[in-house]
């Protein structure tokens, strides 16, 4: 069951095409990463899912039916650029936003008090927002976003401005919300948090969806024929032996250890070379210390995919430059 299905959505802003025939599916109950360089069209897509702007063409399905204005009560959206009314008291303001999401005053107040308690900010209730620090205000914004228990939560860079302790607190809250059945769309430039949190992702670049799928599968897929090898012996001879099957490699300086000189290397091989061939060749030439399939980080995948897309000609490897 998909909570969101985007079918061929395009959006044009005068001379600039913000989205070009983008499609994606977001399974219910998962954490979904929405990635892409700045200005790629992520915010436009989020606004379309939020029913803030309408697409020029294409369709968005929410929970199986075409998205309508009433669906927004089932969505909680924490935008990247966000603010609160400076002169308003924190409690009043949180109540105001809760009521806009359809909660009754009394119900909203009980739940707000509970959240304030949980985040240790109960004594801010009667403070004005202008007295809070940026991180404090962001806690309030987070509470306001999740308070009405929406089916779909959209977080745009939720951790920016948080110290590591509060970021961890927030991360756990997000995962708990997912465990309770919510779907989370997570837009960020922090690729480590994508690896830690997301089940699936879509990479948007230059208004198009250039890569979509399961995080683990894609990493495996992209890590195919990509190996990490530590060995003792003649490095030059190894490279000579592997010869034409190497697409790309990276060799560290020899490292002096108790058991002798060790080389750490990374190899990307041509698609027709199997792992078996590689191990055999290596085993024949040098003494293998460790061997590993090198799963690329999301960071590598991001950079490699985007650069390949923008610059399709020769294989410009990001890995060899690391």
């Amino acid at each position: 069951m998909n909570i969101i299905e985007v079918h061929g959505v395009s959006k044009q802003y005068s001379s600039h095409k913000a989205l070009d025939n983008v499609s994606l599916e977001i399974p219910a109950g998962s954490v979904y990463g929405l990635l892409g360089p700045n200005g790629a069209g992520k915010t436009t897509l989020i606004r379309i899912i939020n029913h803030i702007t309408a697409p020029d063409s294409g369709q968005v399905l929410f929970d199986g039916h075409p998205l309508v204005a009433e669906d927004v009560v089932n969505i909680g959206y924490l935008p990247e650029e966000r603010g609160l009314y400076k002169k308003m008291k924190v409690g009043d303001q949180a109540l105001f936003f809760a009521k806009l999401k359809g909660l009754k005053t009394r119900e909203a107040e009980t739940q707000l008090r509970a959240w304030f308690e949980k985040f240790g900010i109960s004594d801010w209730w009667n403070k004005k927002v202008e007295e809070l620090s940026k991180g404090m205000a962001q806690k309030v914004q987070f509470i306001v976003t999740v308070l009405h228990r929406p089916k779909l939560l959209i977080f745009d860079e939720p951790f920016s401005g948080f110290d590591p302790i509060n970021a961890e607190l927030l991360k756990n809250e997000i995962l708990q919300l997912r465990d309770e059945g919510a779907t989370v769309i997570f837009s960020t430039h922090n690729m480590e948090s994508v690896e830690a949190l997301c089940d699936n992702f879509t990479l948007i670049n230059r208004s198009r969806n250039i890569l979509s799928g399961n995080v683990a599968e894609i990493r495996r897929e992209m890590g195919k024929n990509h190996y990490r090898l530590s060995f003792q012996g003649d490095a030059d001879k190894l490279i000579q032996t592997l010869g034409p099957s190497i697409r790309n490699y990276n060799m560290s300086a020899p490292e002096q250890t108790e058991s002798g000189i060790i080389y750490n290397s990374e190899f990307t091989l041509n698609p027709d070379v199997t792992m078996h061939d590689f191990i055999q060749a290596a085993n024949d030439t040098v003494e293998i210390v460790t061997f590993d399939r090198a799963l690329p980080s999301m960071n590598e995948i991001f950079i490699r995919t985007v650069e390949n897309y923008n610059n399709p000609a020769p294989f410009a490897s990001a890995i060899s430059n690391q």
């Binding site: 935008p79 603010g83 400076k86």
Partner: peptide, 10 residues
């Protein structure tokens, strides 16, 4: 102060 960004989602 970008409070509108938060408002337009509701």
């Amino acid at each position: 102060n970008r409070v509108l960004e938060l408002m337009v989602s509701s």
